[in-house]
């Protein structure tokens, strides 16, 4: 094992340290030290290396997620405020078969799905790779499966190939 097992993690932690404490030579030395230790610690924790490809695809995914979060924020806020008047809203669980198997891609999908208001990742069935999703405003089950499968899954598959 080399001196710097995870250079990206170390550099990110060092930058973070500098941003939070201030830019000076002393803090840089301390930051680099903390970054190296963090890299070793990350190496102990993580089982597989993250391979990211296609930065353009990552930007597209980030933009798509940002738009979806804004839109569903509005939807959920409106639904909460009108909940007493309209009792037609029905929430429920949806099971979606996933083709993704990469653990890091699944973790990213979990973050996307859960940080979007209105959908919550509940469980992933390890036997048949089915995702159990709770949807706040369930109009059509297939619609949600379609959203996940077409909007996020192909991009994630490309990024974490």
């Amino acid at each position: 094992m080399s001196m710097i097992p995870h250079p990206v993690v170390s550099i990110l932690v060092t930058i973070l340290w500098m941003v939070l404490t201030g830019f000076s030579t002393g803090q840089l030395v301390l930051g680099v030290l903390v970054g190296l230790i963090a890299g070793v610690g990350y190496g102990r924790l993580a089982t597989d290396r993250v391979r990211l490809r296609r930065p353009g695809m990552m930007l597209r995914l980030a933009g798509r997620v940002a738009l979806d979060i804004i839109q569903s924020n509005y939807n959920v806020a409106a639904l909460i405020l009108h909940d007493r008047r309209r009792h037609r809203r029905k929430s429920g669980f949806v099971r979606i078969p996933l083709d993704l198997t990469n653990r890091n891609a699944l973790a990213t999908l979990a973050i996307i799905v859960t940080s979007t208001p209105g959908t919550a990742w509940i469980d992933l069935d390890p036997d048949d790779n089915h995702l159990l999703l709770h949807v706040f405003d369930l109009k059509d089950e297939d619609d949600w499966a379609h959203t996940i499968k077409t909007r996020y899954e192909p991009l994630l598959m490309e990024i974490f190939r």
Binding site: I69, I80, A120, F136
Partner: peptide, 24 residues
Amino acid sequence: IGALGLIRLGNFYDRLHAPTLATS
């Protein structure tokens, strides 16, 4: 609104969506 949803909504799984408003 998120905190209001936490109080108003009827069951736990619905309430799970309310804090995401506050955190996003």
